[in-house]
Design a protein around this nucleic acid. Structure first.
Lengths: 238, 238
DNA sequence: CGACATCTTTGACGGCGGTCAAGTTTCACA
DNA sequence: TGTGAAACTTGACCGCCGTCAAAGATGTCG
């Protein structure tokens, strides 16, 4: 569903100071605001299709989205996860190679790619923020390659749970109770965890069960995880 | 003919028009030239160490380099490969998470990271080029995640050979004879191919011999590959 | 030219994790 | 609260690919 742009919506935006928009002053952000619109995406709903013309870019305001690529025969790999204040889409390019689908209900701030490209080129500070963000994302993606190429299933799961506990400890909308026993709600189903880690759903399930029986984690419900023994996870993360 | 009093090395640089430097005019590039210096790196020699303070950035002039991350117990994953005109290093950051090692004898144009950062911030056109390059690298890295997480050994090898035949068909210093039967010299040992694909050296070797016995490729020497049946490779690439 | 080190290939074997097939739990919705 | 569908777990089996070991090929340097 689509809502009409709200005057000065940016000024009260919860990610105003963390997203790339933080590079802009009030006047500039009002100009950018004219180009974009807010959009709600419900869990499971796609925002961008793989191999589409790259028509949209967006900032995540609230919620979690997945970036995926697939083979023709249906195998899927999650190649990125976007949290609030993250930028999604492919500026300065012609096609995207990844689909973007909401994992939770989400709100995003979308722009036509061509509008955004033009605006960005005129605002070097914005491009600089985007560059820093892209470089950081590349770092993160590369360390994930290490995991996919060289880690065992047990190491993958341990690494994943530690990353989740870090990533979700901010205001991501997935209830977190920080402290010695971090507890959080996964934005992923078991199948999606498998798609992140390059495993099957059965292997993910077995590893979760093993960690639970070893007393390393607790699983209060399907989506909830409580880390009982963080040191053990670190030890198993490879 | 009289030589100009100050003739920067950049003006005759073979990657002058492909590297990020192409964003700069003659005056600007002379200024950048003052900050950098050329350096030869012999095959096997490291340029940047994993977890080092990010002190260097560089442009590749000639040769091929690998970016790797390792686990404590010595498993290695190649997370990127840099060809002529590619940019390496981590600007605007404090540490790098990847080592950079030359695969072939190489020549690079290195800068102190702090010098480069300062210069870049003053030259938006340069930052824009760097952004486009980083976005493209992120795309490539993500499609490699698909390979690492979801493809079989046979598919990995086929994909790898096709990518090599594309990448090396430019002036990379690895002799190439283009045409219906592309033939090239790999800049990788078998172990390094394994480190790119998340496999073992034995599996790589077995896949190579299989493709040879199927008549899909020819292996004139250890490092040389001739593609006999490109369509078969495409069919096996998943 | 010969000897040694290194890289690569090949073989035998086993285990990790994938596949297939039930069960079981959870949840949405009546 | 009952009911069905979807998500998850568990078990049995097996195949791909990793491990271990040894032989073969290639290159270097005396």
């Amino acid at each position: 569903m689509v809502t009409a742009p709200i005057m000065s919506a940016c000024e009260t935006c919860v990610v105003r100071n963390r997203a790339i928009c933080s590079a802009l002053d009030t006047q500039e952000i009002n100009a950018l605001n004219q180009l974009g619109r807010r959009r709600a995406v419900t869990a499971g709903e796609p925002l961008i299709w793989e191999d589409d013309d790259s028509l949209l870019v967006a900032n995540v305001i609230e919620g979690v989205l997945k970036l995926t690529t697939s083979t023709e025969d249906g195998r899927e790999q999650i190649v990125g996860v976007a949290y609030p204040s993250d930028f999604i889409g492919r500026p300065f390019g012609h096609t995207t190679k990844a689909s973007v689908v909401a994992l939770t209900d989400a709100r995003v701030c979308v722009f036509a790619r061509s509008d955004f490209d033009r605006f960005a080129k005129e605002h070097p500070e914005l491009e600089h923020k985007l560059l820093e963000r892209t470089l950081a994302e590349l770092d993160r993606t590369r360390s994930w390659m290490m995991l996919l190429g060289r880690k065992t299933a047990a190491e993958k799961i341990a690494t994943f749970l530690l990353e989740m506990s870090d990533r979700l400890s901010d205001n991501v909308g997935c209830q977190v109770f920080p402290g010695p026993r971090p507890r959080f709600t996964l934005p992923f189903s078991r199948q999606q965890v498998a798609d992140v880690l390059g495993l099957t759903i059965e292997t993910v399930s077995r590893q979760f069960t093993r960690l639970k029986s070893e007393g390393v984690i607790e699983l209060p419900s399907r989506r909830e995880v409580e880390i009982i023994d963080r040191a053990a996870l670190v030890g198993q993360a490879g």
